[in-house]
Amino acid sequence: MAKLKDLAQMEDRLVAGHGMCLGCGIPLIFKIILRATEDPLIIANATGCLEVCTTIFPRTAWNVSWIHSAFENAASTIAGVEAMYKALKNKGKIPADKKIKFLGVGGDGGTYDIGLQALSGAVERGHEFVYVCYDNNVYANTGGQRSSATPLGASATTAPSGSKSPGKIQGRKDLAQIMVAHKIPYVAQASPHRWQDLYNKAKKAFEAVGPAFLNVLCLCPTEWKYDESKGIKLAQLAADTCVWPLYEVENGRYKINYKPKQKKPVLEWLESQGRFRHLFKEENAWIIEKIQQDVDRDWEWLTRLAEISSRP
């Protein structure tokens, strides 16, 4: 079992001086994930908060090989890097014993939305890489536009609440399930508040034979509108309300990694963030009810899948 004390003494692959917001969840996620392999690593990063805030020329916060090419193609870009690695290995231009890990990274905009096709293609082709989506439910880099990961009822600048609108009227796309449907060896959902779980999942993903996908809940005080010191508490609440279940699917078998002793009502989650504030108006009460129903249904479904998976 990894100890934080040991992890803290490893070299940072993402370093200080990046420009991410106060209380941002992204560095917390990658602090752990980038320590989950000791092999040399090459990262392809989609356009987004992480990319922009780490590479404002002439500075870079990356202490690791890194490439950004566009918004929708982190998966195909890293696939290209991986293909060249295989080619040069086959041709004997890279020593046979040299191992390199490949990591594609994007936010929910670059992954659920504009980059979904490239991601689907790259995992279908079986490139050896890990893809991490840091899902903060919104296009945060550009000021809070809706994505297909924005939850029902959240107010986003392109799905704003108003006198005639309760905010986003569609639910979230279930990206982890879409990735499971690709029959890849490893898919997991994680959250920064359970670092050991996140670390283990990243390690499994790096060690998987074939593509692996991690969907990680990413705190965003700027767009979720909460006191930035409370982020980890919020992540805990997301798991306790089952809004963000922590689970993994290893070779098709589901395992829930965290079951709240007492499932908390989604109300607590919604109350905690300004993006849901308008839901507490009388006319929007149905939305809160619907959110609870959706969460219950999805949790029930996940529980059953885990049960089925546990059968011999």
């Binding site: 370093v15 001086g17 590479t55 870079t60």
Partner: peptide, 15 residues
């Protein structure tokens, strides 16, 4: 090619 060859030089940016 617009490369940045100075890995981790963001430490000069005092947040």
């Amino acid at each position: 090619g617009a490369l940045n060859l100075q890995a981790g030089n963001s430490v000069s940016n005092l947040t």
